[in-house]
Nucleic acid binder design. Structure first.
Length: 886
RNA sequence: GCACGCGUGGCCAAAUCGGCAAAGGCGCCGGUCUUAGAAACCGGAUAUUGAAGGUUCGAAUCCUUCCGCGUGCACCA
């Protein structure tokens, strides 16, 4: 042990020792409970950023904590190595995506290793390697067999900037999830996975994992699935001019979805989406004005959505009529810009009195507003009054009025009975709709897993045989970045034999969405070399489900819905026995920093913070910023990244401060779920703290020999032991509940207590030396999750060998309730809620004694003197509050 | 607009069930050491817990309103 703390030296030393002894490589062990600690796998961009450091530091802390708690911990890592940036690099820099990716992986693996993260590197996987994506294809074929993978012509979300197809999740809010630019629509034939087949399960399954998942993720998933229960109702459509009964083949119906069938007597119109098929069908009879309006609505819809402004309701009466099947009333059929073709049936019944949107629409166009639901206590009044001027729509449940036979029924009862009635008479049925759509997985990309399908002129769409997997990507393809599938230009790839008839066939040239790779990767870690199956069900049965998953909450809907879907499919394939892959989820906040930019050109051009002159107010907030050439810049706090110039390079930090200090600081600086605003100064405090422990151990290293416990303990020794055991209790609880900042503070306090105890190696008695030894050993062990290299080194000094904690069977310290207990408690005396005095009492002293002691207290008596004691509140072990009057 | 969350010293933050006017770190100030500084060590200051009301013997903690900030959803019938 050096006298001084040289982080680099000990970090290299222990990283080598860990690697040589393969201490983090794990196998099935039925003797110990297992723990699967997982962090979201990185995209190999080539550079680790602070967000990664945070994510992986947290995961590593949990992994170490669980190891020291006696668990058999699986802690793997891999690479989400398919995806667009590799193609961008190919276009921009003329490099081969494969080479580029492999180099990046190499660089980032080195960065992770320098951070000393305790991964089982023998299980490392990479999505772009054929031995991995073979099983993307394997799963595709299994889903194809089960009817869960299908192809259809569809309008896809298309990002003009990225030249890419996006799934609904990736195009959420009309903006591209990657670049933030508006999404447009395009017609393409696409492959889909039937996520909707599991819609109910995806929703209901959330209840079973509720305890371990953040509330906001659960909420967002529920919103995204968006189940709503209601009814479908058919309205017969009449064409004006044609009277009398139509021939059956001329009869048309418009079907609406409603969650409020109980309001149907209040319907004043049917409103269609502009894309509704009925419009096409009857369009010939529409006036020019109607056509113009429909065109206008469609045009507006195609425009990028401005989310700030609320779109004003617009529409027009088509002239068609529809018959309310309940009342027989003839209603006008409108087209409205607020009705979406993608949801429900693309047609709604407009009930302005009980729906805000319909209300707004009716107000604008002067449509009648009829109240048919009333608050129960007003039902009679409302029923007798003919016209009611509603100020606002009444959207709650209530009692039906003006609804014929159904008058007086509650909304709940009416919904059931009316749905039943519609069903009985053949014009409706109960129905459930979802916002969740099937998952479009086709991408017109090169750098992804090929979809294992062959098109044959005779046999049609033919799946590749399982034995012929993987369908390997060619070495390279002409990547133009213009949105066509690069593979379609590689004839060796495209031209093949039909797996069925042996005749000429053409391969599917689209590749799969990269979210496919990440939907099942953590199962692969359990059996990474399996060539027959994605993984052995037996191995997966031991390790999975994941006990703790950690990642950014930007994946709350996409990745985490896909992987839950995938798990349910795997369950139905017999690979696993459960439907929820992740028991506990932790979403960490972003690491952000100040950015400075110029957006005059419409695009943000970032300036390096070092070259910016910043003016700050008293609170440190930025007031103004100027670039080196004196130009005023805009500023913001944004996610750290290299391109924005506010990134801190992890390698540099490790070089200057050491990996342990960097990790310790990142964990200490803020609660994990919070945003972390980067400030450079704090990390020095982390180094100082590590040095402080280091020096303490160094000072004491030769003096533990005289330690002997069991002897009579001095007051200082007992006090120190109490602090030690209280700290163990605190840290244990914190780590169990995934708090990392508070245990670091507790470790600092314990360290301070060791220094403050006044016990010196030269004159310590045997019991005092023993107390110090216990304190410092506990401190070092508990430091491990935060600063493992330093902890290992110090532990080796304390224990006298360099085999490492795990080989020595080291365990997280156990606290003793008895030693942690205070032997004397300070009880507070309040008079009328104000602190007036204190006295010492035994823990657990009974109320009457505490009360008597408080009343007898001389200082308290000063405040009670001459007044009437109204009552005395005693909180055992805490305080006595004397309430007086006068 | 709707829903949810947050607001504690200059900054980041802690405080089971309401219970000692409030931990720890950064920063700041002073001292020791040093030629000086840095580091280290020792010591110190700094909080009507966003505002106003309410409940209570007692409120950072519970309730109401307001202000500020953040996140999610955004015409989902």
């Amino acid at each position: 042990m050096d006298e001084k703390y040289f982080p680099k030296k000990i970090e290299q030393k222990w990283q080598a020792k860990w690697a040589d002894a393969k201490v983090f490589e794990v196998q099935i062990d039925d003797e110990r409970p297992k723990f699967y600690q997982l962090e979201m796998l990185p995209y190999p961009s080539g550079n680790l950023h602070m967000g990664h450091v945070r994510n992986y530091s947290v995961g590593d802390a949990v992994a170490w904590y669980k190891r020291l708690k006696g668990f058999n911990v699986l802690h793997p890592i891999g690479w989400d190595s398919f995806g667009q940036p590799a193609e961008d690099a190919a276009v921009k820099r003329k490099v081969n995506p494969r080479d580029w990716t492999e180099e990046n992986i190499k660089a980032m693996r080195g960065q992770l290793q320098r951070l000393g993260l305790s991964y089982d590197w023998s299980r490392e996987i990479a999505a772009h390697r054929p031995e991995y994506y073979k099983f993307d294809q394997w799963f595709f074929l299994k889903m194809y067999d089960k009817g869960l993978a299908y192809k259809k012509m569809t309008q896809v979300n298309w990002c003009e900037t990225d030249q890419a197809t996006l799934s609904n999740e990736q195009a959420s809010g009309g903006l591209c999830w990657r670049c933030g630019n508006p999404v447009t629509k395009r017609d393409l034939e696409q492959w889909f996975f039937k996520t909707t087949a599991y819609a109910d399960e995806l929703l209901d399954g959330l209840n079973t994992i509720e305890a371990g998942w953040p509330a906001n993720v659960l909420k967002r998933q529920r919103d995204w699935i968006g189940r709503s229960e209601g009814a479908l109702v058919d309205f017969e459509v009449r064409v004006p001019g044609k009277t009398g009964s139509l021939k059956p083949e001329d009869r048309r119906k418009v079907r609406v979805f409603t969650t409020r069938i109980d309001t149907i007597f209040g319907a004043n119109a049917i409103v269609l989406a502009a894309e509704h098929p009925l419009i096409e069908e009857f369009g010939g009879g529409f006036s020019a004005e109607v056509h113009a309006k429909i065109e206008e609505i469609l045009r507006e819809k195609a425009k990028p959505a401005d989310h700030e402004a609320e779109v004003e309701k617009d529409g027009i009466d088509t002239g068609l009529k529809a018959v309310n099947p309940f009342s027989g009333e003839e209603l006008p059929v409108w087209v409205g810009n607020y009705v979406m073709m993608e949801y429900g049936t693309g047609a709604v019944m407009s009930v302005p009195a009980h729906d805000e949107r319909d209300f707004e629409f009716a107000k604008k166009f002067g449509l009648p507003i009829r109240q048919v639901i009333s608050e129960p206590h007003l039902a009679h009044e409302h029923h007798t009054m003919q016209a009611l001027a509603l100020e606002d729509p009444y959207t709650e449940s209530g009692v039906l009025v003006h609804s014929d036979y159904w008058n007086g029924k509650t909304s709940e009862a009416a919904k059931q009975e009316m749905t039943h009635h519609a069903h009985l008479h053949g014009f409706g049925e109960a129905a459930t709709t979802y916002k969740l759509r099937d998952w479009g997985i086709s991408r017109q990309r090169f750098w992804g897993s090929p979809i294992p399908i062959v098109y044959c002129d005779t046999c049609g769409t033919v799946p590749v045989h399982f034995d012929d997997l993987p369908v390997e990507l060619p070495e390279n393809a002409p990547i133009t970045g213009t949105g066509e599938s690069p593979l379609s230009k590689v004839s060796e790839f495209v031209e093949t034999e039909c797996p069925k008839c042996g005749g000429p066939g053409r391969r599917e040239t689209d590749t799969m969405d990269t979210f496919v790779d990440s939907s099942w990767y953590f199962f692969r870690y359990t059996d990474p070399a399996n060539e027959i199956l994605p993984f052995s069900p037996d191995l997966a049965a031991y390790w999975t489900p994941v006990d703790q998953y950690i990642g950014g909450d930007d994946h709350a809907v996409m990745h985490l819905i896909y992987t839950r879907f995938w798990t349910k499919v795997m369950r139905d394939l017999g690979l696993v026995k459960f439907g929820e892959p992740v028991t506990r989820l932790l979403t960490q906040g972003m690491v952000v920093g100040e950015t400075f930019f110029d957006d005059e050109t419409g695009k943000r051009i970032y300036a390096a913070p070092g070259e910016v002159t910043v003016e700050r107010d008293a609170k440190g907030k930025i007031v103004s910023a100027r670039s080196a050439d004196g130009k005023a810049l805009k500023f913001a706090i944004e996610r750290m990244s290299k391109s924005k110039g506010n990134g801190v390079d992890p390698d540099e930090m490790v070089e200057i401060y050491g990996a342990d200090a960097a990790r310790l600081f990142v964990l200490f600086a803020a609660p994990v779920e919070n945003e972390l605003v980067w400030n450079e100064a704090g990390i020095e405090g982390a180094v100082r703290f590590l040095q402080r422990i280091w020096r303490f151990v160094h000072r004491w290293r030769d003096s533990f020999a005289k330690a002997a416990s069991g002897s009579e303990q001095s007051e200082v020794a007992r006090k120190l032991r109490r602090k030690t055991h209280q700290t163990i209790r605190r840290i244990d609880q914190s780590l169990d509940t995934l708090q990392f900042n508070t245990p670091v503070a507790a470790l600092m306090e314990l360290c301070n207590a060791l220094y403050d105890s006044g016990i010196e190696p030269e004159n310590a008695s045997a019991d005092e030396a023993a107390a110090v030894q216990e304190g410092v050993t506990s401190l070092v062990l508990m430091l491990t999750p935060f600063a493992p290299h330093t902890a290992e080194e110090l532990y080796s000094v304390l224990i006298g060998n360099e085999n490492g904690m795990l080989a020595n069977g080291a365990l997280f310290p156990e606290f003793s309730e008895e030693l942690a207990a205070d032997d004397e408690i300070e009880v507070v005396i309040q008079v009328n809620g104000k602190l007036r005095s204190k006295f010492a009492a035994k823990p657990g002293e009974d109320r009457s004694k505490l009360e008597a002691a408080a009343l007898a207290d001389p200082k308290a008596q000063e405040f009670i003197a001459g007044k009437e004691v109204v009552k005395v509140v005693v909180v055992p072990d805490k305080l006595v509050n004397i309430v007086v009057k006068g």
